[in-house]
């Protein structure tokens, strides 16, 4: 271990760290929005749109982010859609994450028990009231574990951005290793960088999961 190497690399890692955090945040928020929309389309069985949503969810979940990014960044320019690597990264991550989130929410909606739905119906609720007051509040609470897993997954997936040369954490480390041929120091910094992001996130999500569960079901 050479401490001067670590010291010199700190600013570069700082930039990579900020970029990873920022891309993760944008990607997670975008994914949740897309996921909510897609899962609602599926829930209300909106004609055509729900089929499109289902096709999208399956395509997003069953293909790797890497190839999705290659498509956006290398193939789309051929038909005239040019975008920066950061734009491609964000669109790719939201495309992927939206599918995962939608699947999680749908699972939550389906987890609401029949007896809950029946008792709502017995109170004379219509389809939308049932969704608004029974299925969604309970369904979102039930999908919290999936949401938490997806958040962790999406943060880690930003490391794939290195293939389109977005200078996030992983790309920063690989660049430095390539330039200076020192791997131990740079890999250690990379691991610590992810630990600094992931450990608080995991703890926060665990706390949030308990809180939401308690708020919705009281246990």
């Amino acid at each position: 271990m050479d401490w001067t190497i670590i010291q010199q690399a700190l600013p570069a890692y700082g930039h990579g760290f900020v970029l990873t955090v920022w891309l993760s945040l944008v990607g997670i928020i975008g994914s949740i929005i897309v996921g909510v929309i897609a899962s609602l389309l599926q829930y209300f069985k909106t004609p055509i749109l729900s089929q499109i949503a289902t096709a999208y969810v399956e395509l997003a979940r069953n293909t790797p982010l890497l190839i999705q990014l290659f498509f956006l960044y290398y193939a789309f320019p051929v038909i005239g859609w040019r975008m920066s690597s950061i734009t491609a990264g964000i669109i790719g991550l939201i495309f992927l994450g939206g599918g995962y989130m939608a699947e999680g929410f749908t699972g939550g909606f389906q987890g609401v028990t029949d007896s809950q739905i029946n008792s709502g119906e017995a109170l004379g609720m219509n389809r939308f009231q049932l969704a608004r007051y029974v299925v969604f509040p309970q369904g979102f609470a039930l999908s919290m574990p999936a949401l938490a897993a997806n958040v962790i997954f999406l943060i880690k997936e930003t490391s794939i951005f290195t293939v389109i040369a977005i200078p996030e954490l992983t790309n920063t480390a690989l660049d430095l290793i390539g330039m200076y041929y020192r791997s131990n120091e740079y890999l250690l910094m990379l691991v610590i960088g992810y630990a600094i992001i992931m450990i608080p996130v995991i703890l926060l999500l665990n706390w949030l999961e308990r809180k939401v569960r308690y708020g919705a079901f009281g246990d």
């Binding site: 880690k156 791997s183 890999l187 990379l190 691991v191």
Partner: peptide
């Protein structure tokens, strides 16, 4: 759980031969 698979792959890729 903390480390992305890309990072895992590179850890093996660099540590195995170099260290």
């Amino acid at each position: 759980r903390i480390l992305p698979s890309v990072v895992l792959l590179y850890l093996v890729y660099y540590i195995l031969p170099r260290s």
